[in-house]
């Protein structure tokens, strides 16, 4: 079944831009990225869009659809009402380069600050032995496809450019959590997590967890354990308060 989709796309660059309306014929079962590709192929050859796998595995095609950060390749048109206008804008947290493409170098710069993994030596037979239960925690974080939706939705940096210097964001907190929980890791990265990542600035509103297309429980399984690991409870008011309210246990 083919029908006409009302598509509104932000067009412009660093100097400014505007929402532009298009009508694009689409078919049953298609996703937002299909509509953008058809628009590009037939009406706007120079429309800037990032994409690679078109299967939700590479995290390239992130944008905000009707205001919500999403992967355009995994957003089916059938979730919208018939006749509804679908508005696609670039991720708000990062500077626009052109149209839907933003400058995400912030994330790559922060990644350079993550400490290097330093494992214990291999066993005599050249292998490492780890149990499935022990690798599973880290495996959850390593599902991350680096779409940076969590970074875009995080209000510590979403409208606060000034916080970017000191704050790495949820994607990078996964990296610190991964190191902390890696069965072979020999170093203690608490200082790095505290000083370089700025994890203390996160006040666990869980926005990141909500937008994660991989369903990683970023706040509960990564950020809170990292916070607990790096700071004394009395030092981080959020952790202190969280303990008081939700998780009072026998050792309190």
């Amino acid at each position: 079944m083919t029908y006409d989709l009302n598509l509104r796309v932000w067009r412009g660059d660093a100097s400014g831009g505007e929402l532009t309306d298009y009508v694009v014929p689409v078919e049953e079962g298609e996703v937002v990225l299909d509509a953008l590709h058809r628009l590009q192929a037939t009406q706007t050859g120079d429309l800037a869009v990032r994409w690679n796998c078109k299967a939700g595995k590479c995290g390239s095609c992130s944008a905000e659809i009707n205001g919500k950060p999403r992967l355009t390749c995994m957003t089916r048109l059938s979730i919208f009402e018939p006749g509804e206008t679908v508005t696609v804008t670039p991720l708000r947290t990062f500077p626009v380069i052109r149209d839907l493409v933003t400058d995400v170098s912030y994330n790559y710069e922060k990644a350079k600050k993550v400490p290097t993994f330093s494992p214990e030596p291999r066993q005599a037979d050249g292998t490492y032995r780890m149990q499935q239960e022990d690798v599973q925690r880290g495996q959850e974080f390593r599902k991350c496809i680096e779409c940076f939706l969590c970074q875009s939705v995080c209000h510590v940096i979403r409208d606060h450019e000034e916080n970017k210097e000191a704050f790495s964001g949820p994607r990078l907190f996964l990296r610190y959590a991964e190191l902390q929980m890696h069965p072979l890791e020999t170093n203690d990265h608490r200082d790095a997590a505290r000083e370089e990542s700025g994890v203390g600035m996160c006040n666990i509103t869980k926005c990141c967890t909500e937008v994660c297309p991989e369903g990683i429980k970023i706040t509960d399984n990564a950020i809170i354990p990292v916070k607990e690991h790096v700071v004394d409870r009395s030092y981080d008011p959020v952790v202190w308060l969280g303990r008081k309210i939700f998780r009072r246990s026998s050792d309190d």
């Binding site: 993994f117 494992p119 291999r122 050249g126 292998t127 490492y128 032995r129 780890m130 149990q131 499935q132 690798v135 880290g138 495996q139 390593r142 991964e178 890696h182 072979l184």
Partner: peptide, 17 residues
């Protein structure tokens, strides 16, 4: 094996390999 040394977390056998 080298990938494991660089942080890769493969699924394991019951023996931990």
């Amino acid at each position: 094996h080298e990938l494991e040394e660089w942080g890769a977390l493969f699924d394991r056998t019951a023996e931990g390999l």
